[in-house]
């Protein structure tokens, strides 16, 4: 049961990240999936990805060091990094 709750929370986080990305970069939500490469799907560079990180921090009230984004390019892994800090 506990495991299920944790899974569902990660799913919630992933959905919230997708919604944030959709709003911020004006890409329809239905076009984004957790395994998408956000650089490619949102058409953004590494600076804009940092900008997304700032939006995420404001939304979840957490602090994510820049290095948490290193080597991450899909929404799912990003959500996992966020999840571990919630």
């Amino acid at each position: 049961m506990a495991k299920y709750e944790q899974m569902s929370t990660l799913q919630d986080t992933t959905n919230e990240v997708l919604a944030l990305a959709s709003t911020h970069f004006k890409v329809p939500r239905e076009q984004l999936t957790p395994d998408d490469d956000f650089f490619k799907k949102l058409g953004i560079n590494s600076l804009q990805a940092l900008d997304l990180l700032t939006r995420i921090e404001q939304h979840f009230h957490i602090e994510l060091p820049d290095y948490e984004l290193q080597g991450v390019s899909d929404f799912r892994t990003l959500a996992e990094r966020i999840q571990s800090r919630l």
Binding site: L47, L50, D51, L53, T54, P65, D66
Partner: peptide, 17 residues
């Protein structure tokens, strides 16, 4: 900067703001 006595400012984040 070091061989001129100047100051280096490091930022641990690259967020534009």
């Amino acid at each position: 900067p070091f061989t001129c006595g100047a100051t280096v400012v490091h930022l641990r984040t690259l967020r534009p703001e």
